[in-house]
Design a binder for these strands. Structure first.
Length: 606
RNA sequence: GGGCCGGUAGCUCAGCAGGUCAGAGCAGGGGACUCAUAAUCCCUGAGUCGCGGGUUCGAGCCCCGCCCGGCCUACCA
């Protein structure tokens, strides 16, 4: 056995301007949890962190529309999202938020460290301001006529008609998308992250990942290196982390840009987790021991933040950019060892779109169907390496044919028969060649499935795991224990013993994908203790939103370290009492396809 | 406009240092069985691998052009 590894599972931070849909969790949620559970089962030390991303313009704008504070919007969706992720069974060690005092402190430390190492400088640009509110308008919220093609609905950052990049000051007849008024353009000073100073180190870094990362991630990132530009890391907005420098700290309308603070979340959440365990330095084992590995999970739209910007920030803070420098008090920080990006899920042939209500929200989904059914679908048919389409017909089919009929039925037929005839796991007699062959194959599957999981090939891993289930069904049908009951009861006992061993193994193989079902199968087979831990919601306290005093907010956490589940075939114990099991999964009536499609059509207004 | 990714059986998707690579599941057709949520098991037909060129003894897999879709292009996984 190789020594235990420290594996940071860093999961993309869902943005808190609404409930998340199943496309979101297909990208970061389910794959990261499958990975983390597998690594824990393999005996490794896993730290899985994430939280809601709450700063920035979208939350600010939504708050204005509703006439409430951004903090209220963030509180609301932080809770909604946390509840959704718990319901999905995602085993975070800590799922927190970006509005905690701890997060503010860590973000400001990163900023300060980069500033002191000379990787941040100031730059003056023209910004659009709303005359009536005095508030800065983001480029995207300025509309006007495109100076190049004449299209009237061009945005301040780009023209959707001709595709040219624009500056808001280029627009003819600029107007605010929020209230239609004509913006003023004023000088505004911003802090810039000097990305070009990291071109060389980033190049070496990415080159060292060649052959290891998915090619789309690598090629995309390498290409960006050719044209690295300094990147603004502050914005004219009042909803964000304050700039931790003399003369700026009190600036009410100038804050650190949301993307800068969001990526720091991986680190700040690790620090927060350590504080909560009572060992404030515990996070260091996953960030700076040189041996630790970090796996980042996200959708394809986020690649650049994880392969370019976040590494640059970590390197700069650690004093490893072109201008050198020395680490701040946190010490030297490790860059991501693996960036796992997924593609996008479409919905019955069209793009998910919250604004057009083409979406299936996680909480909506889980009200009617089980978390395992969704997890299964998202791994089996999700956008792992290319966009895939979610259809209700396929969901129902996967659920009925694969979960219920193939896996659920194997569990049911084998345990039922053993319970009815023996009341316990029967003692095996002498094993035949057929018995040995199928048992050997079952043991071998731990290597093949595990190999896929180690390489983040979740779809292939699940396919292999399900193949062992099919093999077990085949074995059961060929051995015909129901015939042996009359002709050779002892042999029937052996066949059922073998079948139950196959069920036990398959259940272990499927545990990362179907944690809830695996706990139930574990119990059905007479197992005790917690097989694989489920997350829970707790109320935590901290200062929120930079305000004085403390507030409570929900965090996701759980106990996973001492779980029973291990990535290996464990011999079942003859004589363990068995009773007739309840069905593992619920079969869906085909009519749900029409119902769901009607629901969607209604939502879209068709 | 630029960059990257994808376009494979009716459907959802695998495949790729270029030489059993034309695949799996489902749907369709036939058969076996009854332990099990009418579940399971076996057999079976379908494709000019987006289009047009090229490189090669040989190309879904390499090169060029084109068409379609997605993502990024400094505030949505």
């Amino acid at each position: 056995m190789p020594s235990k590894r420290h594996i940071l599972t860093a999961v993309a931070w869902p943005y808190a301007n609404g409930p998340r849909h199943i496309g979101h969790v297909s990208g970061f949620g389910v794959p990261s949890d499958v990975f983390a559970r597998f690594q824990r089962m393999s005996g490794n030390h896993v730290l899985m962190v994430s939280g809601t991303d709450e700063h920035g313009t979208p939350v600010r704008v939504l708050a204005d529309q509703e006439g409430v504070s951004p903090r209220e919007v963030a509180d609301r969706y932080n809770r909604v999202i946390a509840e959704d992720l718990v319901a999905l069974g995602l085993s975070y060690d800590l799922f927190t938020r970006t509005t905690t005092g701890n997060h503010y402190a860590v973000v400001q430390e990163l900023f300060t460290g980069l500033y002191e190492n000379d990787y941040i400088f100031t730059h003056t640009t023209k910004g659009a301001v709303s005359p009536s509110t005095g508030r800065t308008l983001p480029d995207r919220y300025v509309e006007g006529t495109c100076p190049i093609c004449g299209y009237e609905g061009a945005r301040g950052d780009q023209c959707d008609n001709c595709g040219n990049q624009l500056d808001p000051t280029d627009l003819i007849d600029p107007r605010s998308k929020i209230n239609g008024e004509t913006p003023e353009f004023v000088d505004t000073e911003h802090f810039m992250l000097d990305l070009p100073a990291f071109a060389d180190v980033l190049g070496e870094y990415l080159d060292s990942k060649s052959g290891q990362w998915r090619t789309n991630v690598l090629k995309f990132s390498l290409n960006l290196l050719n044209d690295l530009q300094p990147r603004a890391i502050t914005r004219d907005i009042d909803w964000g982390v304050p700039i931790p420098l003399e003369g700026w700290r009190g600036e009410a309308n100038k804050r650190i840009y949301v993307w800068f603070d969001a990526v720091v979340g991986y680190l700040s959440a690790s620090v927060e987790w350590a504080k909560r365990t009572g060992d404030p330095d515990a996070w260091r084992a996953w960030w700076q021991n040189g041996e630790a590995e970090s796996f980042y999970f996200m959708g394809k739209d986020n690649i650049v933040f994880h392969t370019e910007i976040w590494p640059a920030m970590l390197l700069g803070y650690s004093g490893q950019g072109a201008r050198g420098g020395s680490p701040g008090w946190l010490g030297q920080l490790d860059v991501p060892s693996e960036v796992v990006s997924s593609e996008f899920l479409t919905m019955e042939g069209r793009k998910f779109s919250s604004s057009r209500r083409v979406a299936i929200y996680v909480n909506d989904f889980l009200r009617r169907y089980s978390a395992d059914a969704l997890r299964y679908y998202l791994v089996a048919a999700g956008p792992e390496t290319q966009d895939t389409d979610f259809t209700w017909a396929e969901f129902v089919r996967r659920n009925n044919d694969e979960l219920v009929a193939t896996w659920g039925n194997l569990v049911n037929r084998s345990i039922s028969m053993a319970a009815k005839n023996f009341g316990a796991i029967p003692e095996p007699g002498e094993l035949t060649d057929d018995d040995r062959r199928v048992l050997d194959a079952s043991v071998a599957a731990f290597d093949t499935v595990g190999d896929h999981l180690n390489r983040s090939r979740f779809k292939a891993a699940l396919q292999e795991a399900m193949r062992t289930v099919s093999e077990a069904n085949k074995y059961f049908s060929e051995q015909q224990p129901w015939v042996l009951r009359k002709t050779d009861p002892e042999r029937m006992g052996t066949v059922l013993h073998v079948a139950l061993q196959l069920v036990s193994d398959a259940n272990t193989l499927l545990t990362p994908f179907l944690p809830d079902a695996s706990n139930r199968v574990h119990a059905m087979l007479g197992g005790t203790g917690v097989w694989t831990g489920m997350p829970r919601l707790e109320e935590a306290t901290d200062s929120i939103g930079g305000e004085e005093g403390t507030s409570t907010y929900p965090v996701i956490t759980g106990d996973y370290a001492d779980n029973e589940a291990r990535w290996e075939s464990v011999p079942i114990r003859s004589g363990t009492p068995l009773s007739r099991p309840d069905p593992l999964f619920t079969k869906l009536d085909p009519s749900v396809v029409d119902e769901e499609l009607a629901r969607l059509a209604e939502a879209v207004g068709e």
